[in-house]
Nucleic acid binder design. Sequence first.
DNA 1: GCCGTTTTCGGCCCGACTGTTTTCAGTCG
Length: 572
Amino acid sequence: MKNHEIAALFERIANVLELKGENTFRINSYRKAARVIGDLTGDIEDLARAEKLTDIPGIGEGTAEKIVEYINTGKMSKYEEVMKGVSEETVALMQIPGLGPKTVAMLNRELGIASLNDLEKALQEDKLQGLFGIGDKKIENIVKGIELFKTSQQRISIGMAYPVVKRIIEGLRHNPQIRDIQAAGSLRRMKETIGDIDILVSGTEGTEIIKSFVNMRGVTQILAAGDTKGSVRVEEGVQVDLRVVREDEFGAALQYFTGSKEHNIHLREIAKKKGLKISEYGIFKGDKKIGGQLEDDIYKILGMDWIPPELRENRGEIEAAQAGKLPKLIEISDIKGDLHNHSNWSDGIPTFEEMARHAMKMGYKYLVVSDHSKSLHVANGLKDDELLEEIEEIDKLNKKFKGFTLLKATEVDIKADGSLDFPDKILEKLDLVVASIHSGFKQGKEKITERMIAAIRNPYVNIIAHPTGRLISKREGYEVDLDKVIEACAETGTALEINCFYDRLDLNDINCRKAKETGAMISISTDAHHLDQMWMIELGVGIARRGWLEAKNVINTFPPDKLKAFCKKKRT
DNA sequence: GCCGTTTTCGGCCCGACTGTTTTCAGTCG
């Protein structure tokens, strides 16, 4: 699948054209093309073969030709043409905050600066002084920008940002000057990584609110503290911005600061065609404000349904909302249990009983105990007889519970040759089987795909855990043909997992949507090794919502009997 | 480069801030 390669090429073309001062609308169309191709759920080569490329919004004749050229020859002449005389390093300079295309182009033209090294050297030698449009302040800002670029490039996982937001909102909620408080930005959209955290407040006495915000526990550095905006760094290393807006503007501001940028641009285009205007202050007809207190105002006035934040990525949600065809997204309250957890029998901390009590407190009807299997020595994987013993213990314990069941399971290793780490005659004694890959990551794509499909075809395997093996910003996943895996799951009645652990979030949103479209079921599970990790189910539900999933697509929304029937069906 | 319930040509999202200049370009979210 070449989707990401092609998207990256268009993104690079856009960056270089920007540096070269090309027409901004042309640049934006390359960016848009890059974005829609990156978001496609299908294979772009299939679309090219079917001559359907121009059906994709944002792809016209010109772009389609370039895609076809790349698919057929492995080259894109437009890309090679624009890259002449420009280095990637020069283009990368535009990522430094405060340096845009105009400044980078000017520095390159006047001083031959083509890399970060060149720029730092020129700064040391005071060479920027006296250039057109460059004053002392600008130089100071470039120095600061470089520092910022070096230190704070990384986005953090939503799992790290989420507790920070909860803490801040809890801490401020009781402040009498505050009427509404709500996280915005990519966190509200439940994106898997977060750049910085945006929190929006409506209320009077902005100065007072900001003051209590910047003096909160956990704040390590105050970056700004005015009367409408405060900005701090917290001990987790992330920047948090708090904005105070008027009550009658809260909805419009929330809509605006939630984004995504692409979603908002599309909405404003629609508004413009209707003779309206949207800004962070409201929705306007001429000079007259016709809405903005509620977020719903904006969508309603534009003639569409309110769109859940997780869908706001300009991936077709606006068209669906106009047609009244948005999915009824899964809610956290639909979840009846967690289907992947570890106890102190393998590498987890809690006992069975502690796990069960915690699950009941969360309102669950069932919880799966799925300890590791024997090959995974590092995780103290269970031997055959230990698993049989575990089954007996759980059976005994279950007699104590009413309206709740611990389900007997394993997270069985899919071994390097595709066989499973326990024989079928043991697996058949379990309520449910989770299977996953923990070894042989370096095998080729074909081999890994084969291994997985062999596991999927086993009649006892119900869930494939963390299907791609990626760890966010630590490790790429193993190579696997996920399309084939999804098809095999759909065909056999096997579920794919959204692993909720904050550095996994695997499947991701786009693959979830693909699974839904193909007809494969999903399990949302935490892979918790500790009771304090079971809350992460919220992250998984967020990813599921981003993947357009409804409760009916997710097996752990099923009541106990229906879940059991789902697992049994494969065995018959 | 894309796109069309005013358009096949002439548009293409909005507002704030900053630093530089002397009315505005560049950058950002």
